[in-house]
Every structure is written in structure tokens, then in C-alpha cells.
Design a protein around this nucleic acid. Structure first.
Ligand SMILES: NC(=O)c1ccc[n+]([C@@H]2O[C@H](COP(=O)([O-])OP(=O)(O)OC[C@H]3O[C@@H](n4cnc5c(N)ncnc54)[C@H](O)[C@@H]3O)[C@@H](O)[C@H]2O)c1
Ligand SMILES: NC(=O)c1ccc[n+]([C@@H]2O[C@H](COP(=O)([O-])OP(=O)(O)OC[C@H]3O[C@@H](n4cnc5c(N)ncnc54)[C@H](O)[C@@H]3O)[C@@H](O)[C@H]2O)c1
Lengths: 230, 230
DNA sequence: TCCACTTTGTGCGTGCATTCACAAGGGCGT
DNA sequence: ACGCCCTTGTGAATGCACGCACAAAGTGGA
């Protein structure tokens, strides 16, 4: 654990691994709060709900940060994963759509804790503009380009009705934003260099319904699989 | 479109396909509303934002519902996908946690439209119980088992703080619920026959931050990939 | 110093997912 | 009735992901 320079490991972390790193990070924070100094891949994998071999392979993509016979230093691993995910810097986030969902997101305390700062809450409804939500004044959508530039927004959240989502998306992209989290139930059209991730509750429920139907269907033979990956 | 019996296609739809069917369904509903009678795999794939070969292979898992040289009948395909996903029946959903998120979910109109009925909204806070949200009285968490039995709940949504999630989960599982949608930032422990899907905003943001950092990092060579799958 | 024990990091086999490319099939005009 | 054109459905190739199983490596005790 002396601070050697452990070969930053050529760029190429698998997407599946990237998606699990936040899970490990959360588990590690839990261990850290309880004062645990080191953790084995077996323990950490158990807390994070994954296979221990998978965990070790995931971590090996970042470098060799473990100690054989001992495990991983919790604080050191937290730092390394945070650095890899880009959480050692702060990110300004703009939320668009101050409706039910947008306000819930703005009120959610879980963002700030991990390097994300809600820089602005935008809405098109004049009746909404000016209201204070979670210590933030709702601003008019016309100020979008201004907000992106002045607040240095790099990630935006779209929580408008589906019909407005593509328009809002285009304006963010035009203003230089290249990461979008979309809650509107529609597929956004963006240039190749822009990343979009979507959250769609309706789709999640439909997937659950599919499996539920299969279970209830009582087909010949108990052949449904196990719990889905979390 | 005569009602033949087209061989229900042996059970075994790939999970990746199941996750995309709702996407196709949404696109088809859009086409249906605009009166489009038939659609080619190319067009539908474009609207749904996927590769057309993938779309055809996905649909082929349900059966041979297309017509070569013509495409797919929109209404017929809507019916077939709905049936496969289990949307031809209604599902009762119980939401637990009437906080910011739980209330936003309850107020969201997009559930009822596709066969999901919010049967109950549960909370542990006595001050919250009895309040009306989206035409629904918030009920006390103690009535959980009652609600599951009487309302025939098969899917539950957990929107409580993380600390309470596992306990609530256990009670739902004990009451016979086998499909869970979890918003709390923690890994739920469930028996094998229970399906859990999670939605974690914080993880989504962290994944975006990772890619954002890579883009900004300006490593040697423009070698970041494209837009993520939506 | 040496040995037994623990745990990491990874080579390898397996299976799933994606995409290409095309033969098979169906409609339509002549 | 025939042949052209369009689109589906799928074989095959490639690549990614997962998990086993083990050698390598570090610890601690004697
Ligand atoms: N509420 C939920 O639980 C939930 C669940 C799943 C999906 N969604 C989706 O999230 C989105 C928002 O849901 P909601 O329940 O908050 O809806 P909502 O109607 O409560 O809020 C939408 C807000 O967007 C604003 N808006 C409309 N057009 C705009 C524009 N062009 N620019 C900026 N703001 C604009 C409206 O003024 C309104 O305040 C919808 O697309 C919905 O389908 C919501
Ligand atoms: N609000 C968001 O945008 C957001 C985003 C991401 C994740 N989350 C997660 O969703 C969950 C809910 O978030 P929120 O913002 O609505 O929180 P909140 O504090 O506003 O609401 C939580 C509700 O759960 C109730 N509750 C507590 N213990 C309970 C129990 N044992 N049984 C039943 N109800 C109980 C509380 O009374 C409260 O009404 C949290 O786990 C949060 O981390 C929320």
C-alpha cells in the first residue's frame, strides 16, 4: 500500500464492470462507516450481492489494489474506485421539469453526498418559475443555455413529459451537454458522442409482469430461473 | 391474421429480448395512434432505437408474426407482445413509502394505462396515514399482509429509506409477493423464486460521470465509443 | 529462515448477445 | 401464370460476460 505507480491499466474497462463499480463503492462506504479497515473479495462480494470471482475481475481492471492473503484496504479502494468513476471532482447537474418527479429528485438528498450538485431546476410553466424547491429557485427553460454555461453543467436530467423531451434534449446537446439521464418514456435521438441513460418505470414493471405471468402460468415443470441481477 | 394457432414457441425468451419488448410495444402504440396499419422491421427498429436484425430476432422468439415483403401488422403485433408480457391481464401494485418519490409514483398516470393498477400506498409514519394521494388513502404499513391478500397484490414497489427496505421486502415476500421493484439504494436479499429489479439514480449518475470524465480526460487518441444503449 | 495458510489475480471454457448476410417466402404488376 | 422486388426469419461468425479453478504472492507463526 505504499504509493507506487501501479500502471493505470490501459483504458478499456468493460461496461458491465463500470455499472457495478458504484455498487461496490456503496458497499465500501458502509464498511468504512463501521470502521472496517480491510475486506476480502468474498465479504465485499457478499455485501454487494455478486460473485466473488466477478468482483475480483472487476477490480483487477482498475489495477492491483489488493493484498494477497489479506484483502483490500477499504479506504484505499474507495479512493481508487471514486477516482475511476470521476467522483473526486464535482459535477453540476441540471434538472428539467419541476413536476412530481423533478421535485422529488431535487428534494432527494442522495445526490450531493457523492459529488453531484444540483445546479438548476428548469421548467416551462410560468406558474412554476420562481417557486422554491429544495432551496433552489425554479428557473425558466429559456435560460437553459445560460445555466449550462454559467453553472458549467455537464450532466442533465430530463423529467418533462415525453412530448417535450426531445426538444429539451436537443437544446442541452446544442449547449454542449454530453451526458443525459432521461426519465421521459421515449427514445432520445442524440449524436454519437452524447451518452444517454434512461430510467423507465413502466418498462421495469412490464418486465416484472412477464416473469410473474410465467411463474403463475404453472407450465409443465418448475423451470423458472432465479432472482434477477440487482 | 386469421386466428391460427402459431405454435407458442417453446418457452425460452432471452432476458435481453424481454427487456426490449416494452420498447417495441411503446413504439407500436405510437404508430397505432397515428393510424399506421403495418410497419417494417426497419422502420420499427428505427423508432425503437435498435438494430433491425436484433428486432427481427427478438420478434421471432414470439412466433412468425410478420409477412415477408410487407412487414408486421401493427395491431396484431401489439396484441402478441402484450400477451407475451402478461399485459392482457391487470396487475395490482402496492407502493410502500409515501415520501417524495412514493407520492410522485402514485401521482404518475403512466402506470394505469398499461394494465397496472395501484392498489395501495403504505407508510409507517402515523402523520402520513390517512392523507389522500392521487385518489388513494395512505394506509399504515401494519396492514401490509391484509392489503396483499385482499387486493391480490403481485408486484410491490419499495420507496422507503434504505434502512427500512429489507424489512419491508421481507414482509412482502412473507405475504407471497414474488416481484419487487426497489428504489432504495441497497441490495435486497430475497429467496430464489422472487424477482427484484432496482432503479438507482445515484448509480446512473455515476456511470454517466465515468464516461463524462473519460471524454473530458482527452486521453491520447479519440477512442471513446458511441452513445450508450437506451 | 521456512512452512502452512489465506486470498488475490487471471487463464480458460462455456454460454449468451449481437450483427451480418442471405435464402426462403409472399405480394403485386403485367 | 410468371417473374420481379421487397422483407422476413435465421444460420453462422464474432465478441462479450461470467464463473471455475488454480498458480502466484503475501502473512504470520514456529
Ligand atoms: N412521476 C413519476 O413517478 C414518473 C414515473 C415514470 C416516468 N415519469 C416520466 O417523467 C416525466 C415527468 O413526470 P411527472 O410526473 O413529473 O410529470 P409532471 O406533469 O408532474 O411534470 C412535468 C413538468 O415538466 C414541465 N414541462 C413541460 N414541458 C416542458 C418543457 N418544454 N421544458 C421544460 N419543462 C417542461 C411541466 O411544466 C411540468 O412541471 C414524464 O415524462 C413521465 O412520463 C414519471
Ligand atoms: N426522491 C428521489 O428522487 C430518490 C432518488 C433516488 C432514490 N431514492 C430513494 O427512494 C427512497 C425514498 O425516497 P424519498 O425521497 O421518497 O424519501 P422520503 O424520506 O421522502 O420518504 C420515505 C417514506 O418512507 C416512509 N417509511 C419509513 N420507514 C418505513 C417503513 N418501515 N415502512 C413503510 N414506510 C416507511 C417514511 O415515513 C417516508 O414517508 C429512498 O430510499 C431514497 O434513497 C429517492
Amino acid at each position: 500500500m505504499t504509493s507506487r505507480t501501479p500502471r493505470p491499466r490501459e483504458r478499456g474497462i468493460p461496461e458491465a464492470t463500470v455499472a457495478r463499480l458504484p455498487l461496490y463503492l456503496r458497499a465500501l462506504h458502509g464498511l468504512s462507516e463501521r470502521g472496517t479497515p480491510t475486506v476480502s473479495s468474498e465479504e465485499l462480494a457478499s455485501v454487494a450481492g455478486v460473485n466473488s470471482a466477478k468482483l475480483r475481475k472487476d477490480l483487477s481492471h482498475l489495477g492491483s489494489y489488493g493484498t494477497r492473503g489479506v484483502g483490500y484496504d477499504v479506504e484505499y479502494l474507495i479512493y481508487q474506485i471514486s477516482r475511476e468513476l470521476g467522483l473526486t471532482q464535482d459535477w453540476s447537474v441540471a434538472i428539467t421539469g419541476a413536476g412530481n418527479l423533478g421535485r422529488a429528485l431535487a428534494n432527494y438528498g442522495g445526490f450531493g453526498t457523492r459529488g453531484f450538485r444540483i445546479a438548476a431546476l428548469l421548467d416551462a410553466d410560468p406558474a412554476m418559475v420562481g417557486h422554491e424547491v429544495a432551496g433552489l429557485q425554479v428557473r425558466h427553460i429559456d435560460t437553459l443555455e445560460d445555466v449550462v454555461a454559467k453553472e458549467n453543467v455537464s450532466i442533465c436530467v430530463i423529467a418533462t413529459p415525453a412530448a417535450a423531451a426531445q426538444g429539451v434534449c436537443d437544446r442541452f446537446v446544442g449547449a454542449g451537454v454530453t451526458s443525459i439521464l432521461n426519465f421521459a418514456p421515449m427514445v432520445l435521438n442524440v449524436p454519437d458522442h452524447v451518452d444517454v441513460r434512461k430510467v423507465d418505470l413502466s418498462i421495469e414493471l412490464q418486465i416484472l409482469a412477464f416473469h410473474e405471468q410465467r411463474k403463475a402460468g404453472g407450465d409443465k415443470g418448475p423451470e423458472w430461473v432465479g432472482a434477477l441481477d440487482q
